[in-house]
Design a protein around this nucleic acid. Structure first.
Lengths: 363, 363
DNA sequence: CTGAAAGCGCTTACAG
DNA sequence: CTGAAAGCGCTTACAG
């Protein structure tokens, strides 16, 4: 064992990290040799390598990843830039599926995944602080400069569920088509008083872009032929976070005011599940008294009772494609891609004809 | 604008990241001043600060987080060391809840969260590569040197659901008590042919430690008075990953062999949900033909049909406490803590009396 | 096959 | 209030 540096009164519980210099000295070789022993052993005689490894093992040496990143300009981590704090995001299984997709690619590439939610409430602040090689950006509804901030960081990124500039890779799904198909189905069942559950960002309606805007447009497409308009008293918009709790709360608010809707169209399966739960525990039957539709078709959608009528989007694939584009950009500087994946209406049991069409309260 | 370095044939799409040196030069000040302008503006005259900020803004400067980490020895990221790859882990809502708990603490501390699954199949390899200030280690069943590797990294860590050394903070729950209560309930309903769904690591039974071992011990505690023993033909152990798919597969295997169990006790709610799904779609009624119990009491447990009888553990709180201990260790070098949180049997609808007690096949 | 030296982009005592 | 200089722990041409 080498001597412990006799610091004046250093608490003994932080025994000074061992560095490449110490290994070089102890092994009687240069730092170069130590570095090669770990990164490119073919450059060294086999005996040298094993000697160095032995010394490193004995002293408990492990190359400092930060210092390594400093010179290689690589962190071996991908960042997932989230529009919400972790607690909110992880309350929506959408993100579990998304992380699964990114995770597959990370695993193959030997990279780790950094979750980057807003820092002190600001996405802009979070970007320059994350030590990652690139970002997958998801659900950036409004471009208030995030893209600019990302560019300034000189870090590759790909956007998911958002309008990307031409030169930035993106992955989107046919939100508009899916939303339209769903709303058309709801309407064809005879519903005319409908509540649409929107993400929180709805408050900035005019500035709203990306997936949210596309879905609203899709709902609008379906409503128009019926002479209905989104945001009118018949087709109310209700701000709702995409969480189970959000859905529950939305139902409470909705049910407290006349006229009650006969159908609720949520922006996420998880919010729809919340609505169903709250409805059932209030003695409101689904779909007899209230129809409920979701969006995403996550696993949950098929095992709630009643099973959820929803729009299927390939969440995991979306994430995988985005991560693949990013990893490609990182290595060979892969091409810019713009994917648009299909969506599909999935009819299950949670939407049915209203009992008293166009009549008074649905109770 | 400063001149672009006239590299021979550099593609124009990577315009050389701007550094503190360039800002200093452009602003006519020292690097020290630039650094202060960003990190401790009180050290500078207000005019100097705003001038520097202006130049930085114009040139699109953002301090390099890696270089900063290099000198500060801080990354501002927490690592979550996972025992499984991301795709598997994120198929279990347990980890969503866990991340929520850690996320709350990260948010408060202004840190990001790095997900660190095994690298090339090895947890040992993953540890030295992650640029984090500390690790929350979850579900490390077998100590094959991970702890040693962690110490060698000289990075604080706290262990969750695992046996921690005295000097390492840990958070655990009363797995044994919870498991015992659950199994006792199942037995009291009259079940005698029971399948226990175990995590994959069960293959190393003798070396198995931590939460898994505790739960098995708890099951054993409850079985003993009935003269039953874990692993015998009556109380079979079935290796099952904690995913919905894992549960489905387990049911298939289970149901293909005689004698069939009358009850399945899973190690996670998500696997239990998979069992229920597979059973129902095979025409096997739950709980009439087969009782199913879970573990965790995640949100899902209460909205599957039939609602799941399970053991509640405070997953989010567990994660939160662990992250708090870690953050404390990072700042003031907080005390070592060893939490053991309570568990609770939650009786719902998925466990009932078997229809033909002790009779032949349950079909 | 091995080593001396420059450099990655910051921060931080220390002087002035 | 501001700057020159050392240093963080590595990697990597470049020489030998």
């Amino acid at each position: 064992m080498s001597k412990v540096k006799s610091d004046t009164s250093q608490p003994p519980r932080m025994p000074r990290k061992v560095t490449i210099t110490q290994i070089a000295k102890e092994a009687g070789v240069s730092k170069t040799a130590v570095s090669f022993a770990f990164n490119d052993p073919t450059q060294l005689a086999a005996a040298t390598v094993s000697h160095i490894h032995e010394v490193a093992e004995r002293l408990g040496y492990t190359p400092d990843p930060i210092a390594r990143s400093m010179t290689t300009r690589r962190t071996n981590a991908l960042g997932l830039l989230l529009p919400q704090d972790l607690a909110t995001a992880m309350s929506n299984p959408f993100y579990s599926a998304f992380i699964r997709g990114v995770g597959v690619v990370c695993g193959r590439a030997g990279m780790t995944l950094m979750l980057v939610p807003p820092l002190w409430g600001s996405i802009l602040k979070a970007i320059p602080h994350a030590t990652v090689d690139g970002f997958v950006v998801v659900g950036l509804e409004v471009d208030r400069g995030e893209v600019q901030q990302l560019r300034r960081r000189h870090v590759p990124f790909v956007m998911v569920d958002g309008e990307a500039p031409e030169d930035v890779s993106s992955v989107n799904v046919d939100d508009r088509g899916g939303a339209c198909a769903l709303m058309a189905h709801v309407l064809s069942c005879g519903h005319r008083r409908i509540a649409v559950l929107c993400l929180e960002t709805w408050k900035h309606r005019e500035r709203c872009t990306g997936a949210l805007a596309s879905r609203l447009a899709g709902y609008g497409d379906a409503l128009a032929p019926y002479g209905l308009v989104l945001g009118s008293p018949m087709v109310r918009l209700v701000e709702t976070p995409s969480t189970r709790e959000g859905g529950r709360a939305a139902f409470q608010r909705l049910w407290a005011e006349e006229p009650r809707p006969t159908a609720v169209v949520a922006m996420s399966d998880i919010a729809a599940v919340g609505v169903i739960e709250a409805a059932l525990s209030a003695g409101v039957r689904v779909p007899e008294d209230l129809s409920v539709a979701g969006f995403d078709d996550l696993p949950d959608a098929s095992y709630v009772r009643p099973a959820l009528t929803t729009v299927r989007q390939p969440v995991e694939e979306k994430a995988r494609l985005a991560a693949e584009a990013l990893v490609a950009a990182l290595s060979n500087g892969g091409q810019v891609v713009h994917h648009v994946l299909p969506t599909e209406l999935v009819i299950r049991d949670s939407v049915a004809r209203p009992r008293h069409e166009m009549a008074g309260g649905a109770v």
